[in-house]
C-alpha cells in the first residue's frame, strides 16, 4: 500500500449486526497506521433485496456509492462482504460496459476514472506489503488455536469481479491468520454458502446449511471459524451452538491485544472468549 489514506464505506450493519466487526476492524486499521475517511454521503448498497426485486435498482443504489468514491478519488475500503460484492459489481459493470458507464455518469454527475479500486477488508489487510507490519504488531501469538477460514460467497464470486486468488480455494485469510500464530486447518467448506438472506426467512434451511459447514469444521478439528462476512457470521453464529465464529479482524485485535474485546465477545451468540 503506497497511499495510507483510504475512502471508507461503513455499510448499514456497521451500526447494528456487525458492530463488533467494525469496531475491531477500525482498531486494527488504526494500529497499522492507516487512515480511513468515511464517504461524505453513502446509502445502502441494496443488499440482496434490491437485486432480488430489480437489477436496475440494485445497480442504481450501488453506483451511487461508487460515484461518491470516484468523486473522492481514493480506493474505497468496504468491510462488509455483501456491500463489497454489490459495489464491486457496479464498479465492474461501469468498467466493462461503456453504455452503463455513460448512463450512470450522467445520473450521478461524475466521471468514471479507472484509478480507484473497490477493496474488501481482506484486500486491504491481507496485502503482501502489510505482512511484516502485522507480524510485528502481534503481541500474543494465538498459539494452539485451531482455525478454519470461512470465506463464503461475496468476496469470492464472481471471480472476475472480486479478483480473488482462487475461487474454489482462496488462501488470503488463511495466511493472514497463520501470521497471527494460529494453526490454520485446511478444510472443504471455505467457499460454501451459508444461506445468505435466507437466514431471515427460512431458519430451518439456514440451520441445515450452517450445520453442514460446522460439521466439516468440527471434523477438521477446528476450535472456531473465522470470516470476513457479516451475513456469514450472523447465520453461522445464530443457527448453531457448537462453535464460535469470529471476524478475522477480531482475531487480529486479540493477537495485537488491542480494543475492547470482552465487549465484542458479548455480542456473539457463541462466546469466543473461552478460546483465549
Amino acid at each position: 500500500m503506497t497511499a495510507k489514506i483510504f475512502s471508507y464505506y461503513p455499510g448499514c450493519t456497521s451500526h447494528s449486526t456487525a458492530i463488533e466487526y467494525i469496531e475491531a476492524s477500525l482498531a486494527v486499521i488504526e494500529a497499522l497506521g492507516i487512515e480511513l475517511r468515511e464517504l461524505p454521503d453513502w446509502c445502502c448498497c441494496g443488499a440482496a433485496s434490491a437485486h432480488n426485486l430489480s437489477s436496475s435498482l440494485a445497480l442504481g443504489l450501488s453506483s451511487y456509492n461508487v460515484a461518491e468514491a470516484q468523486k473522492e478519488g481514493r480506493d474505497l475500503v468496504i468491510p462488509c462482504a455483501g456491500c463489497y460484492g454489490n459495489l464491486a459489481q457496479a464498479d465492474y459493470a461501469m468498467r466493462h460496459d461503456a453504455e452503463v458507464r455513460r448512463r450512470l455518469e450522467s445520473e450521478f454527475e461524475f466521471s468514471f476514472k479507472d484509478e480507484i479500486r473497490m477493496l474488501s477488508l481482506v484486500d486491504l489487510l491481507a496485502a503482501e506489503e502489510l505482512r511484516g507490519e502485522i507480524k510485528a504488531l502481534v503481541k500474543k501469538p494465538l498459539d494452539g488455536l485451531k482455525v478454519v477460514c470461512y470465506y463464503g460467497c461475496a468476496i469470492v464470486r464472481p471471480g472476475a469481479v472480486t479478483g480473488v486468488d482462487d475461487c474454489e480455494n482462496p488462501r488470503r485469510i488463511d495466511s493472514l491468520v497463520a501470521d497471527l500464530g494460529a494453526e490454520v486447518i485446511d478444510w472443504s467448506c471455505k467457499v460454501d454458502c451459508c444461506g445468505g438472506d435466507l437466514g431471515l426467512t427460512d431458519a430451518e434451511k439456514t440451520a441445515e446449511l450452517v450445520g453442514r459447514i460446522v460439521d466439516y469444521a468440527e471434523a477438521a478439528g477446528a476450535d472456531c471459524l473465522v470470516t470476513s462476512c457479516a451475513l456469514c457470521q450472523a447465520n453461522v453464529d445464530i443457527r448453531q451452538s457448537r462453535m464460535p465464529i469470529l471476524y478475522f479482524t477480531e482475531l487480529m485485535a486479540e493477537a495485537f491485544e488491542i480494543g475492547d474485546r470482552a465487549r465484542w465477545w458479548k455480542k456473539h451468540f457463541n462466546d469466543p472468549g473461552k478460546l483465549f
Partner: peptide, 24 residues
C-alpha cells in the same frame, strides 16, 4: 411462489427508500 422472501425484500427496500439506509 414464495411470498415470504418477497415480503422481506420489499420491507428491506422500503426501508432504504425511507432512510437511504436500512433500519433493522
Amino acid at each position: 411462489a414464495d411470498p415470504t422472501t418477497v415480503a422481506l425484500h420489499t420491507s428491506f427496500i422500503e426501508s432504504i427508500r425511507q432512510f437511504g439506509r436500512v433500519h433493522e
